[in-house]
């Protein structure tokens, strides 16, 4: 998890990931608005997005409570989504503060991470797909080699005809 320097400004940059839980009271078609609000927040802080996953509804392992406008709320499910981005180290606190202020976000977690895909289950699927692709390429590659062989034989026969 290295800190890099911005090419133009020379500011210290780092790869971060924000995981967030959106309250289930938000309807499914309004979840996209929350995501776009997070995007604009990140873009405002000069972040470049590397990867993300759109929020999906999931049951929570335990009941989460929060006090919202003097009322206690309890949640047993939420929409979980994440976004991985690179941004100047100095502005990560602003992102944290602005996420706290958003009432539709139940919880969020900012972690330092790496550019590469760290989710093993998806990485495994990608690797298997890559291997399957390579196997398909190898299978397809046999036909061109046969074609090359046939072409060589044809060249030989043409040569024999020309010489003859």
């Amino acid at each position: 998890m290295k800190t890099t320097e911005h090419k133009e400004t020379g500011a210290a940059m780092h790869v971060y990931e924000v995981g967030y839980l959106i309250v289930p009271t938000v309807s499914e078609d309004k979840v996209a608005d929350e995501v776009s609000a997070i995007h604009t927040m990140l873009e405002g802080a000069h972040a470049s997005i590397i990867a993300e996953e759109f929020p999906k509804a999931m049951p929570l392992a335990y009941t989460m409570e929060r006090t919202h406008e003097t009322k206690k709320q309890k949640f047993n499910e939420a929409y979980f989504g994440w976004v991985k981005f690179e941004m100047p180290v100095a502005s990560i606190n602003d992102i944290d503060q602005s996420l706290v202020k958003r009432s539709n976000i139940l919880r969020h977690l900012i972690t330092k991470t790496v550019r590469e895909n760290t989710v093993y289950s998806t990485r495994l699927a990608e690797e298997l797909a890559e291997k399957a692709g390579e196997a398909a390429d190898a299978a397809a590659g046999e036909t061109p080699s046969e074609e090359v062989g046939a072409k060589k034989e044809m060249d030989k026969s043409i040569d024999a005809l020309v010489i003859g």
Partner: peptide, 11 residues
């Protein structure tokens, strides 16, 4: 610990 905080695993 992170997964517990995000409600993915129980405490």
């Amino acid at each position: 610990k992170r997964a517990r905080f995000m409600g993915m695993l129980p405490f």
